[in-house]
Design a protein around this nucleic acid. Structure first.
Lengths: 243, 243
DNA sequence: CGATAGATTGATACTGCTCAATATGGGTGG
DNA sequence: CCACCCATATTGAGCAGTATCAATCTATCG
């Protein structure tokens, strides 16, 4: 076992531990899971809609997103993922994927066979609860996204997306919400907010003009966290204090 | 125990049975759950955002929806519910509600204390799996709704909402998708699709003009199911064949 | 140094919103 | 049984927020 493997265990157990309380037996059961660590280039698909998947992944480093498309090819990103996130838990119980998972940056991740994880969930109620809770948080975040694209204007929508990302990043202990680089392009932001890239560009420009964000070549930083929260109408309750 | 109570057991067990395979022990554990049957008038709240809830409900008759609002009071419905649906499973693991649940029509429902349901889930893996699967389907539907409000135009959005409702109704064995009354007002449809009531009215009028739906005083019926599916770009995969 | 993805900007079009008025119809008190 | 009332649906006119289309600019990378 190399240090990469240790990282992998570490990430999964820390994640599940944040979700519920695991005992020594639970940890052992997780540590005994077979897994593979892999890396992916930016833009690589980890899962495709309609495809049959038999394993599920945990992101170790880098960023990813899930997305769906309409029949005429318009793309909607439904979530962004940060290190520690479990990417396709639904494959444990569904045979066919209903959305795509794609990396945003270079990424490394662990693959665990569904069968094995399912077995651990069936025998260790704490683990089952942690995974279930993760699913419930996912669902809560999706509800907020429906509200975001359905009832907020472009400015609040973009601001909200940035706040959520900052907040989740903070909870996952990946840094402060005050100042950091965003990994995604304006096209990603557009597809996540239901806007066009052109309009996202203009919206970001206007947020920057108001001093809420700062931009330097490609990346964006949140400069005024308080003001952003207000502009977004951001209330992190729906994140249920989890990454 | 009166016939109402029998209905309550019936509904819960049938629902969970559709989600996974329950054995006799599982059924007994569910049948032993304490519960209360209640009725609600149209428009009554069963759960409120930020409120602490200690029980969870299953809808027996009537229709309900879940919704959230922005800080400036704009409402977004995030799901519609039909008889048999479990309404607030997330309260099993979250203390604070992140959205509202409100009836659309008169309704009757069962209330089960979270504690007891949680205990059954912890001891009966099949039950836990059924509930978890229900949560995963919920999440999948939310993803589709994000796509719906984010990337479809008004016409496809409304059509998609109607198709989903018809389809779920059919899976729950509540009738055919070809022809039935919708219980919700145009305002509900507007809040579910991220449109205004005025625009929903016009969109429905245009769908009716094209012969896809028929309207008689308040209600709407789907007249041309095939054409609706096409207009909506509706593919029921995301429902994972569940009600 | 060219290639390429991503960002930026301008001009114009259009979808869906807002405001405002009117119609309809089911339910209720007298 | 009627008249009224309220929620809901419908319609019209004008406008606003975003989309679209089309260049151009800017970094980064091999």
């Amino acid at each position: 076992m190399n240090s990469n493997d240790d990282d992998a265990f570490e990430a999964m157990i820390r994640k599940l531990d944040r979700l519920t309380t695991l005992d020594e037996e639970d940890r052992k059961a997780i540590a005994a899971l077979p897994f593979i660590v892999r890396t992916a280039a930016a833009g690589e698909y980890l899962m495709r809609e309609r495809q049959r998947e038999t394993s599920c992944c945990v992101l170790l480093s880098g960023y990813a997103c899930r997305h769906k498309t309409t029949v005429d090819g318009r793309r909607q990103i439904v979530s962004f993922h940060i290190p520690g996130d479990i990417l396709d838990l639904q494959q444990l119980l569904f045979a066919i994927a209903d959305h795509n998972v794609q990396t945003i940056t270079e990424a490394s991740y662990v693959i665990v066979p569904c069968e094995d994880l399912k077995r651990v969930a069936a025998t260790r109620p704490n683990v089952a609860e942690a995974l279930w809770r993760d699913t419930l948080i996912d669902a809560s975040v999706f509800r907020e996204w429906v509200l975001n694209v359905g009832r907020r204007d472009a400015r609040a929508r973009v601001a909200h997306m940035l706040c959520e990302f900052a907040s989740r990043r903070e909870h996952a202990e990946l840094g402060t919400p005050e100042r950091f680089e965003l990994p995604m392009t304006q096209e990603h932001i557009a597809d996540a907010t239901g806007l066009t890239t052109v309009h996202v560009n203009r919206t970001l420009a206007s947020l920057a003009a108001e001093g809420m964000i700062e931009r330097r070549g490609g990346g964006v930083e949140i400069a005024d966290w308080q003001e952003m929260r207000r502009a977004a109408g951001f209330d992190p309750t729906y994140l249920h204090a989890a990454a």
